[in-house]
């Protein structure tokens, strides 16, 4: 979930979006803010609001800033610009909300659980997983079954030729940036439901996002969908088995997969 947006962005735009972690944080804070402002807002609306807010932010940032940096046709230039964007986003958030930790109050949902076959499952992790799977499903449908998805894949393959056959490449970039930031927002909301987030959480989350992207194969949408699911499942399963595990098992699986790949020679 955390990595899907970053991978989408890298796969299509060929820009490593270092502000991705910040989008995740912003998604979390958008949800917290929405609930503070409108107590009792239904959860799906909160999720949607966070998605839309970050998608707009991502689109505007792409349109006004990153797209220009990309015109230098130099990945480092574009990456540095997204780094600047990340810093600006983080600092403005600190300015507005302070440096405190925030969490989404999930009420009794946090403790709610049920038991099948002797295994006690929390409702909250399951809900997270369901939302993640649904988001992946929608993303896969969009990418592989729609006209927009076709255009996105074409831009990813051969941007110049795509433009020459009439694909509005810049618009596609903005849409992809929006989708990517929106996915980050959903990941952020899910994080906030489980743990607290601070304006400084961005970097940690960027790290996980990197793992998913590297594992899935840089720029391969299909691969990243699978990698995201694998690491997501790992996280959910490991918190069932050991509630203090945090992200340890996720990093471990990532590491094992990398070693495995290096052995089989499939490092790309």
């Amino acid at each position: 979930m955390i990595g899907a947006g970053l991978a989408l962005n890298y796969g299509i735009l060929k820009v490593l979006q270092l502000a991705h972690g910040e989008y995740i944080t912003y998604g979390a804070f958008a949800a917290v803010g929405a609930i503070v402002l409108f107590p009792g807002l239904p959860f799906p609306i909160v999720l949607l609001a966070a998605f839309i807010a970050c998608a707009l932010l991502g689109a505007v940032a792409q349109w006004l800033i990153v797209e220009r940096a990309m015109s230098y046709r130099n990945e480092v230039v574009a990456m540095l610009v997204t780094f600047g964007l990340a810093v600006v986003l983080r600092d403005s958030l600190v300015e507005v909300v302070g440096a405190d930790l925030r969490g989404l109050s999930v009420g009794r949902l946090g403790q709610a659980n049920f038991t099948i076959g002797g295994l006690t499952l929390g409702v909250l992790p399951l809900l997270s997983l369901a939302i993640a799977v649904a988001s992946f499903g929608l993303l896969a449908f969009l990418t592989f079954k729609t006209r927009l998805g076709r255009q996105i894949r074409a831009v990813s393959d051969l941007p110049d030729i795509a433009a020459l056959v009439g694909v509005p490449v810049k618009r596609i970039h903005v849409i992809v940036a929006a989708l990517s930031a929106g996915l980050a927002a959903i990941a952020g909301v899910l994080l906030a439901m489980r743990a607290s987030v601070s304006p400084f959480s961005g970097l940690d989350n960027l790290l996980i996002a990197f793992e998913v992207v590297v594992l899935g194969g840089l720029g391969s949408i299909r691969g990243v969908l699978w990698a995201g699911l694998l690491l997501g499942m790992t996280q959910v399963v490991s918190t069932w088995l050991d509630s203090n595990a945090g992200l340890f098992y996720v990093h471990l699986v990532f590491f094992i997969m990398l070693v495995f790949r290096a052995k089989t020679g499939r490092l790309t």
């Binding site: 006209r147 074409a154 030729i161 433009a163 056959v165 694909v167």
Partner: peptide
């Protein structure tokens, strides 16, 4: 993109088909 709007189309050297699109999708696009 503007060249495309002017009505130009290219059959490039080396084909340059979109590798992640099917044959039919390459036409549709």
């Amino acid at each position: 993109l503007k060249s495309s709007h002017l009505g130009l189309a290219l059959v490039p050297e080396g084909r340059m088909l979109f590798g992640s699109l099917t044959v039919r999708e390459n036409l549709l696009i």
